[in-house]
């Protein structure tokens, strides 16, 4: 039990996909314009990560080594298609605002990365927890970026206006702001880490 918890928690902080491994950046930057989008994307990625890790760890002994990458991609793409259809049916507004980044979850490097680095070598339960932990870390990182961008960039939080006191810094909600916020956040986290050691 303790080991499973460890697999889960390492994805959230010590091996956070965005801040430390620095993978899966494209959706992280593109959808972090509002907290709602970030949460939707985070949950979708967590679902795909958990399920694909589960399936891949179950079939890991049957897949020939040479064609493992195409096999992983087909498993991942299947779950992404499920997410796509569910979003279209039950959350069309979210689907529209995430746009092409829903099908692009397939090529989110973090999912293939975990399949290759973890699920193809470990048994079922640790793989599931690893996937869910990585997904949770991804979601939290997205929420942090989108919180900064939405509050400072448009003066809103989850779509509700929070302050009329200041003029929003428009650039933060545009494309350059995403890159700037992520760069400064990674720098800041490294700085905190270097202070602690």
């Amino acid at each position: 039990m303790k080991k499973l918890w460890f697999e889960f928690i390492k994805g959230v902080w010590r091996e956070n996909p965005i801040f430390f491994i620095v993978l899966g950046l494209c959706p992280a930057l593109a959808v972090s314009i509002s907290v709602n989008n970030a949460l939707g994307m985070g949950l979708a990625v967590t679902f795909v990560l958990g399920c694909s890790n589960a399936i891949i760890s179950m079939v890991r002994n049957f897949i020939p080594d040479k064609i493992r990458i195409p096999c992983f991609i087909v498993v991942i793409a299947t779950f992404v298609s499920i997410v796509e259809m569910v979003l279209k049916a039950y959350a069309p507004a979210l689907d529209r605002s995430l746009g092409i980044f829903v099908p692009l979850i397939v090529v989110n490097c973090i999912i293939l990365g975990r399949a290759e680095a973890f699920a193809s070598k470990n048994p079922f339960l640790p793989s599931v927890f690893d996937g869910l932990g990585m997904g949770a870390g991804f979601t939290l990182a997205l929420l942090l970026i989108s919180f900064i961008r939405e509050t400072l960039g448009s003066g809103k939080l989850a779509g509700y206006s929070i302050s009329h006191q200041f003029e929003p810094v428009l650039v933060l909600s545009l494309a350059p702001g995403a890159l700037l916020v992520l760069g400064l956040l990674i720098g800041g986290i490294r700085w905190i880490k270097s202070l602690r050691s």
């Binding site: 995403a178 700037l180 720098g187 490294r190």
Partner: peptide, 16 residues
């Protein structure tokens, strides 16, 4: 603490 990737992001931001 900005060496490597973080400064690359900031440069990309300015290019953008």
């Amino acid at each position: 603490s900005l060496e490597g990737l973080p400064i690359a992001f900031i440069v990309a931001s300015i290019m953008s």
